[in-house]
Simulated scan of single mutants.
Amino acid sequence: MGAGGAGGAGPTGPASASDASAQAGASAAAASTPAPDLAESLRQVGAAGKSSFEAAGDAAKAFRSLFFADVSLARSALGRTIAFAGLAIACGASAWLLLMATLIAFLRGAFGWAWTTSMLAGAALSILVAALASWAAMRYFEHTRLKATRRQLARLGIGELADLTPTPDSPQSAREATENLRERDAAGHPVTDKRGVPVTPP
């Protein structure tokens, strides 16, 4: 029994000693590792902030360069656009005049119309085309009045339409409220806001 007990204690004794020595070594290593210095942490945070600030500055410089390059390109393109638009208008006008002269000569030669009648026919055609072009221009010009933006600003209480549009919490549509708005009331007086500023329908 005594021998058996000694034999059983023999294998566990060295293992326990080795575990204890390993734990002691880990504790010594942990104790020898220096704690992070506050100044070093602040220095790292400052370096990271400086890097972020420099990156933001570089991005702003790149955006500035891109913006000025776009402005320069747009300015150059605008000049060329105006030049070519003028050339197109001149050539189109001359081509239209020649076309009208050809039409007048054709009406005179083919149908025997008088010069006055032939020129009146050409003038009538020109007036018809001008009227259609004017109608299309006015129709598309309506899109330059920023109607939707003005309605939403008025709904927020900004602009001359603020007194004539529903409040932001109203379920009524601002478009429906301003759709039938007229520049003059039933008496023929201009529609104005509370400050007396004339209201332009959106």
Score class of each variant (00 low, 15 high):
Asp163Ile: 00
Gly7Gln: 09
His189Met: 12
Ala177Gly: 02
Arg150Phe: 01
Ala136Met: 09
Ala55Pro: 02
Trp113Phe: 05
Phe84Ala: 07
Ala74Cys: 14
Pro198Arg: 09
Ile104Cys: 08
Ala88Ser: 00
Ala85Gly: 07
Ala47Thr: 11
Ala17Trp: 06
Ala101Tyr: 07
Thr81Val: 15
Asp70Ile: 08
Gly157Ala: 03
Gln44Gly: 08
Gln152Cys: 03
Lys61Tyr: 10
Ala39Leu: 06
Ala177Cys: 02
Gly188Phe: 02
Pro171Arg: 04
Ser72Asn: 12
Val199Pro: 06
Ile82Phe: 04
Gly10Arg: 13
Lys194Arg: 11
Trp135Asn: 12
Asp185His: 04
Ala6Gln: 03
Glu40Ser: 10
Asn180Gln: 13
Met119Asp: 02
Gly188Gln: 02
Arg151Lys: 04
Thr102Asp: 07
Arg151Gln: 04
Gly122Lys: 01
Gly92His: 01
Leu98Asn: 05
Gly79His: 12
Gly4Arg: 14
Asp163Gly: 01
Ala55Met: 06
Trp135Thr: 13
Ala29Thr: 10
Thr167Gln: 04
Ala35Pro: 04
Ser27Thr: 06
Thr12Lys: 12
Thr33Asp: 07
Ser118Met: 02
Met138Ile: 12
Leu146Arg: 14
Lys147Gln: 14
His143Met: 10
Ala26Val: 12
Ile104Val: 02
Leu161Thr: 00
Trp115Asp: 11
Glu142Ser: 08
Glu160Asn: 14
Thr165Glu: 00
His143Cys: 11
Gly92Asn: 03
Ala74Asp: 14
Ala35Glu: 06
Ala174Phe: 01
Glu183His: 11
Leu132Lys: 10
Leu146Ala: 15
Ser170Tyr: 01
Ser18Thr: 08
Ala24Asn: 03
Gln172Asn: 10
Phe106His: 08
Asp185Leu: 03
Thr116Asp: 04
Arg150Cys: 05
Pro11Cys: 10
Met138Tyr: 12
Ala69Tyr: 04
Trp115Leu: 13
Leu73Gln: 11
Gly5Ala: 15
Arg145Asp: 06
Gln44Val: 08
Ser134Arg: 14
Thr117Glu: 05
Arg75Trp: 14
Ala105Leu: 13
Ala20Asp: 04
Gly79Tyr: 08
Ser170Pro: 07
